[in-house]
Every structure is written in structure tokens, then in C-alpha cells.
Amino acid sequence: MNPVSFLTQMIRIAIPYLFAASGGVVAERSGIVSLTLEGFMLTGAFAAVVGTNYSGNPWIGVLSGMIGGLIFAMIHAVATIRYRADQVVVGVAINLLAIGVTRFFLKLFFASSSNSPRVTGFGGNIHAGGFDNPLLWLGVLVAPVVAFMIYKTPFGLRVRAAGEHPDAAESVGVSVTRVRYIAVAISGVLAALGGVYLALDQHQFTDQMTAGRGFIAISAVIFGRWDPIRAALACLLFAAAETFQIQLQGSHAIPSQFVEMIPYLLTIIALAGVVGRAVPPAALGKAEA
């Protein structure tokens, strides 16, 4: 197992997590629970394949993936912000809806219950190790960009205010509603990009292909204590564990099931405050403002 191949594989595995976790940080910081990342990712993956399939151009796929994520994000936003529906329930509903909708249209467009036709993706040069894929570079950059936005821009300040003290923010003229809508939209687009990367990398869509990656992304958000850079590091950590397990597959050193558990166990431990308290934004989940 050589370090270069380990690192390149680790980064490739981390990209979907990086996209989704960065989006999750934005939405959760604004006060909206983001259990929906899994659903957004799946939608993005499917929409990307549909777009690429019918246009032959993967960039159209990227665009359609982003639109797919945006549509689902808007459903999430309207339900939780305008209708004040319970954010956890809506999260579960969105994830189920994403599975259902992708399955339904998979059948309708491609007459299959399990997978779409193959589509072109990016890159393809075996010697480039995946680094000729522009989406990969986007994924590497997304966390620092989101960090910059959250901490250094006026919008980011409004997002943080909406998540910590929505009442105070309203009283100084910040439209908490508008900020949250935009934050959720961002989370939808970014998480969908994670799915886009996944689908185009595998050159097809398969039923439920995200396989829990959206939940690993949420784990990264929590483990990273709602900070974009720390969440990104958590993503790399989880991806490293996965890479370890893949590269060690033959040797049965640690059963794969235990490696699978690592992100989830770490999150539980983080929540129990063993590795420093994971304190969420004060207004997270309470859409009374």
C-alpha cells in the first residue's frame, strides 16, 4: 500500500462527503436541521445522470444535478420555514421522497429498477488518479470557500446570527426567513454536487447509490462542531478509514463492518462530550423565529 495511492484514493472517497458536509454546515448554522443531505445527494446523482444522458455533456449533468438538489432543498425549506413542520420528520420524509422519486423516474426514463444506462463523466485518464476531474478540484476547494463565506462575509454573519440569536437578528433588520431559505438552498446545491460527483465518477446511477454517505456527512458536521474546516477534516478522517479498509480488504485485519462503524461511533462519542462538547447552533431546529 503506497502512500500516494492511499492519499489519492482517500481524497476521491472524501469528495462527496466534503460537498455534503459543507452544505450541511451552512444550513445547520442558520438553524435548520439537515438530515436531508442524503436525499439531496441522491437527487443530485440521479439528475446528473439524466442530464448527461440526454445531452451527452457532463457539464449539463452538473447543472441538472444542482437543479435537482435545489428543488428538493426548496421543498425542505418551505416545509420547515413556512409551514413550521418538524425538521426531523421533514428530513426523514425528504430522504424517503428522494428514494421514491429517483426510483420512479428511473423506471419511467430508463425502464429499470436498479440502474441507469452508462454516461460519460469527467477525466478518464488512468494515470491522473482522478485529478483530471474538475469536480474533484471543486470538492477540495468547497470547504475553504464555505469557511470564508461563513466567517468573512456579511451573509455568513447573517447566517450565524440566524442560527444563534434569530430574535436579535430580526430586531436589527436581518430577514431570518430569507437567510434560512438561501442557506438551505446552498445546502441542497452542494450536497447534490456530492451526488453528481459520485454518479459521474461511477458513470451511472444505481438505486440508493448514496448508501448512507449523507449521514456520514452529517456525522462530519457534528464531529467538526459545525465548523467548515473541522468538518472537512472529519470527512478526510472518515475517508481515510474507508480507504484503509478497502486497501486492507484481503488481509482480514479488521472486519469491514467495524470500519464502517467508525464515523458513526465517533459522532456518538462527540455528542457525549468525551472529545470536547459538540454544541450545536443555539436556534438549531427551533423554527419559531
Partner: peptide, 23 residues
């Protein structure tokens, strides 16, 4: 109609109830 339609309806029902309770 593909049975996948039911998967969609399940999600729709949950969403609709969640939205209508507070409303």
C-alpha cells in the same frame, strides 16, 4: 404503474402530515 410510485407516495404522505399539523 411501477410499484415505485408507492415509495413516492409514502414520502408525500409524511411531508403532507408534517406540514399540515402546525398549519
Amino acid at each position: 404503474v411501477p410499484k415505485q410510485m408507492m415509495d413516492v407516495l409514502q414520502g408525500v404522505v409524511i411531508l403532507a402530515v408534517a406540514m399540515s399539523v402546525p398549519e
